[in-house]
């Protein structure tokens, strides 16, 4: 597969004033502005939202405090293991 991967963005939406932003999923977009547009088009089709946040998924640092025993995955510094979160040098080739 020769196509460059489109960055992944996590989307958080505040539906009504006074409420916190809530994670509702992700979108693919090349930059932050288009990620906001995509989030608005995909996740607010059924009602106005007051505020949308988008962040590159790779920028999130995650932990899973509920799991203290061996179910805790060591690579859990990312929210999940997505191909775009890890850069591979070009010389290594397609992976």
């Amino acid at each position: 597969m020769s196509e460059t991967l489109m960055p992944l963005w996590e989307v958080f939406i505040r539906n009504r004033s006074g409420m916190p932003h809530k994670h509702c999923g992700s979108v693919h977009a090349a930059d932050a502005t288009m990620a906001l547009h995509a989030a608005r088009d995909v996740y607010t089709r059924r009602g106005e939202s007051v505020s949308i946040w988008v962040t590159p998924s790779s920028a999130i640092t995650a932990s899973d405090p509920g799991d203290k025993d061996h179910l805790f995955e060591p690579t859990a510094s990312k929210p999940y293991r997505h191909p775009t979160f890890y850069t591979v040098p070009d010389e290594v080739g397609h992976m």
Binding site: M6, V27, P79, Y80
Partner: peptide, 22 residues
């Protein structure tokens, strides 16, 4: 809506370590 559903599902699958492109 169907496009949206496809998108939500690709997004869910991506949390398992595969890209939408793949």
């Amino acid at each position: 809506d169907e496009a949206g559903h496809g998108l939500y599902l690709y997004a869910a699958a991506e949390t398992l370590g595969i890209s939408r492109e793949e």
